[in-house]
């Protein structure tokens, strides 16, 4: 039984269809990733699932309840880590958790009993009495995650949980999310970080212009959409080399700025050609999710 199911969701703003026919179902215990460039419709999809805005068409079931009709009781079983930090700046770390727990109708005693556990999970046990302004970006994110767990939710929505964090803070968040998954929680994650999606998500969808353009496990998507090897070359004369040699040796080429990306099933001919080009620098690596993402959504900027 799916914890979240959406069928043919559509939502338009001022004539522009932001979500243009999206369907998916998420099983308990799964980590589902929603990838897409800015403006692809990811956040709107999450808002629809939470019942914060009504779809123009389609149906949603969250925790076996119809949304938006029964969105409010459904949200009692759900946690949300929003894209933008909205911790209460007037409160301490501990008060943020206490006040948030009250919104769920939890008893004062139940919340107070749970706070030390959550602070420990977030690595903030020593900071219970700290003001929010004194926390680092990573601490704030961890507190936001702890706040989303105050009601011991079955399903957690995370909208770009590690955007703006340094690598140390990001790794710590990933470790905590893995802990939650190991504990049986279901996670729906939007992200720009392919590494994050590859590490955490068993299944993901790439969204662009309001539609899911592909769906599957990270490995499946790489196999399905892209050649297994990538050779990136740059340096003086790389465009000449690419026109002269690479075009014949790679199954597909992409040029971005001063770099040529050569995709191939067999990288050996490319590498031996490059070995004779003293002035070119190159990198050979296996294809990854980012290659899939860029192939499917294009390299031009989306603002």
């Amino acid at each position: 039984m799916a914890v979240l199911a959406a069928r043919n969701l559509r939502k338009s703003y001022g004539g522009a269809e932001v979500v243009a026919g999206v369907s998916f179902a998420i099983a308990p215990g799964e980590c589902f990733g929603l990838l897409g460039p800015n403006g692809a419709g990811k956040t709107t999809t999450l808002r629809l699932c939470l019942g914060l805005t009504d779809p123009d068409h389609g149906s949603i079931e969250l925790m076996q309840r119809p949304v938006p009709g029964e969105a409010r009781p459904a949200r009692a079983r759900v946690g949300v880590v929003p894209q933008m930090d909205n911790l209460d700046p007037d409160f301490t770390v501990g008060e943020n958790l206490l006040v948030y727990g009250r919104y769920f109708g939890l008893s004062e005693g139940a919340i107070r009993a749970r706070i030390p556990q959550l602070l420990d999970f977030a690595g903030l046990s020593a900071r219970a009495a700290s003001q929010i302004q004194t926390l680092s970006g990573g601490m704030k994110r961890r507190l936001t995650l702890a706040r989303a767990l105050i009601n011991d939710p079955d399903l957690i929505f995370m909208d770009e949980p590690t955007t703006g964090l340094d690598p140390q803070a990001r790794h710590l968040i990933w470790e905590r999310l893995k802990q939650l998954l190991a504990g049986g929680k279901t996670i729906v994650l939007t992200t720009h970080f392919m590494e994050e999606a590859e590490r955490l998500c068993a299944r993901l969808a790439i969204m662009d212009r309001g539609r899911f353009i592909t769906e599957g496990s990270p490995r499946e998507l790489i196999l399905r959409h892209i050649e297994p090897h990538v050779v990136e070359a740059h340096g003086d004369g790389v465009m000449d080399w690419s026109d002269r040699e690479a075009g014949k040796l790679a199954s597909r080429l992409e040029k971005s700025g001063e770099t040529v990306f050569c995709y191939a099933a067999d990288p050996a001919p490319l590498l031996s050609s490059l070995a004779n080009q003293g002035e070119l620098r190159y990198l050979h690596r296996p294809a990854n999710l980012e290659d899939v993402f860029l192939k499917l959504t294009g390299r031009e900027l989306r603002d």
Partner: peptide
């Protein structure tokens, strides 16, 4: 400014 309402509306409060 603080987006406090957004945080509250993610809980079972309308």
């Amino acid at each position: 400014v603080q987006h406090t309402w957004d945080a509250i509306m993610n809980a079972p409060v309308d």
